[in-house]
Amino acid sequence: MDKKMATTYTYSAFGINISSEIKIPEFLPSSGDIQVTVSYGEVPKKLDEKIINGFRFQISADEFIIRYKPWAAFYVCNGNKIIIQPEKDADENDIKTFLISSVIVMLLHQRGLLPLHASGIKVDNKAVLFAANAGVGKSTIALDLNRKYGYPLIADDVTVVSAINNLPVVYSSFPSAKLWQDSIEMLGLLNKDLPFIRKDVFKYRFDNRPAFFSGILEPLLIFVIENGDKENIEIQEIKGVDKFNVLRQHIFRAKMINEIYAVEHFKILTQLLKSVSCFKILKHNNSNTLNELSVTIQDTIKQW
């Protein structure tokens, strides 16, 4: 990792322009003013003013360290810098997978943004989001709605919300989805040429560049999807304080960082929820209900 030899790539993701020494083919290229740098270097052993001290991470107001053994240690600071210290013989593609999910989310938190664990599509000129816990199928539903009704995709796993002049806005993330084998089958895709996200995880990376919209949108609707135990799909509007309590659970890494960013999150989340309607959908966990789910969501979108 000779500094002098380092090539840098410039990308745009989550409304931010990034200069990176690590190649990130999932991000869109950019030529705008750089706001964030990603480079190889030495990660501090520990933080001086740590507020939260975990098993493999430390967090302070402006700094974050996380160690993913045997891949790399990451240092994120001031919302504008990420330093990666790879372990010996670690695969660069594997390191990048941590970088563009869990690590970059901490940078988003540091920048005062609200990263939700949600996928998203563009409907007319507004954003419709699908918040769900891991494994419920938020990537799959966004891709299916794109395939069936042509809505452009804006996010796969993390959707960033911010407030400009007290109005909530949604930034598109990047044009790549992570899909399990069953999602690939449900969507009728072929996986023979798809790369794994990591050598040890049998989840595929699916490039959806042609179907992607990159930009800023006003939010319209949020669907919170959960696995239920009934055969049919149930949909119900969430109102009042419930809306806040439900969506708060879908802030990315909410439990880990809440005590540091709670005030900022409260402000953005309440502004978001004042402008959107929220629906909770309970779907059956086992049966293949993707088509029914897409139709239910499409019906709701059409009524709006």
Binding site: K239, G240, F244, K267, Q271
Partner: peptide, 11 residues
């Protein structure tokens, strides 16, 4: 206190 109206309730 930070307070925000959510429909007819307040968080």
């Amino acid at each position: 206190l930070l307070a925000s109206r959510m429909d007819d309730e307040i968080v």
